[in-house]
Every structure is written in C-alpha cells, then in structure tokens.
Amino acid sequence: MKYQIKTRGLHCGHCDASVEAALLKVAGVTDADADHETNTVEVECTQDTTPESLTAAIEGASENFAVVSIEIA
C-alpha cells in the first residue's frame, strides 16, 4: 500500500530525514520519502499500517510538523 501525505512544517533536508526516520519506526512501513520543497511524504507500507499511526509518527518527529491530508496513492 502506498500513501501520499501532505504536510506542513518541513523546511530542510534535516526535516525530511527526521520524518523519514520516524516513519520507518512504524510497524509495516517499508519506505518513506519526504520532500520539504513540496511538503509531501510518500510512504510504502503493509495494509495493516493505519493512517493514524503515520500521522502520529510525523507529528511526533517535531512539534513543528503537521499532517494536512493523507491519500492512498
């Protein structure tokens, strides 16, 4: 399963790396690619991974990060 997540608060490559690292700790996530230029994150994961767990990981990576929307890609 693949999700495209629109975010707010990613400003640099370090932000991207923080979000990617947080997402890769979520059970079932196999790949995460954050892009601060477009404020999007693409995540590949198993069907058991919930959008809520992805949101929690992103928003937990920094108090400045927020999820705007999550769509199945």
Rank of each mutant, 00 (worst) to 15 (best):
V26M: 11
S62F: 10
D35T: 07
V67M: 08
C45F: 05
S53C: 03
C15A: 09
T55A: 13
K6A: 14
N39V: 01
K2C: 01
T30Q: 10
E42Q: 08
A32F: 03
A61P: 07
K25F: 09
V29R: 12
D48S: 10
T50A: 00
E20H: 04
T46M: 02
A17Q: 15
A32H: 06
A22S: 11
D16Q: 15
N64T: 15
I5F: 06
K25A: 14
M1W: 05
A34G: 00
S69D: 10
Q47K: 04
C45I: 01
T40G: 00
A73H: 10
V43W: 02
A61L: 09
R8P: 01
N64Q: 14
Y3F: 15
K2L: 04
T40K: 04
E59A: 03
V19R: 14
V41M: 03
L23Q: 06
A61K: 08
I70Q: 07
T40I: 09
I70Y: 06
G60I: 09
A57C: 05
E37G: 02
K2D: 13
G9F: 13
K2T: 12
E42L: 12
Q4H: 12
Y3P: 05
H14N: 14
F65K: 11
A73C: 13
A17K: 13
A27C: 00
H36P: 01
L10I: 15
D35C: 09
M1L: 11
V43I: 09
A56G: 02
V26C: 12
G13Y: 05
D35W: 02
L54D: 12
H36F: 14
G60R: 09
A57K: 03
E37M: 09
T49Y: 04
A21F: 02
S69E: 13
T40L: 07
C12K: 08
A27W: 09
G60H: 10
E42A: 07
H11V: 15
L10Q: 11
A27G: 08
T38N: 02
E37T: 12
A66V: 05
C12P: 07
T55F: 07
A17I: 14
V43A: 02
C15D: 11
T49H: 05
S53V: 00
T30P: 02
V29A: 12
Q4T: 11
Y3S: 10
N39P: 01
A66K: 12
V67T: 03
T55I: 04
V68P: 04
T50H: 01
E63H: 14
A66F: 03
D33W: 05
T46D: 12
V67Y: 00
V68E: 14
K6W: 06
K2M: 02
A17T: 15
L54A: 11
G60L: 11
T7P: 13
T46F: 00
T46Q: 08
C45H: 08
A22L: 02
E63M: 04
E71N: 13
V41L: 10
R8Q: 10
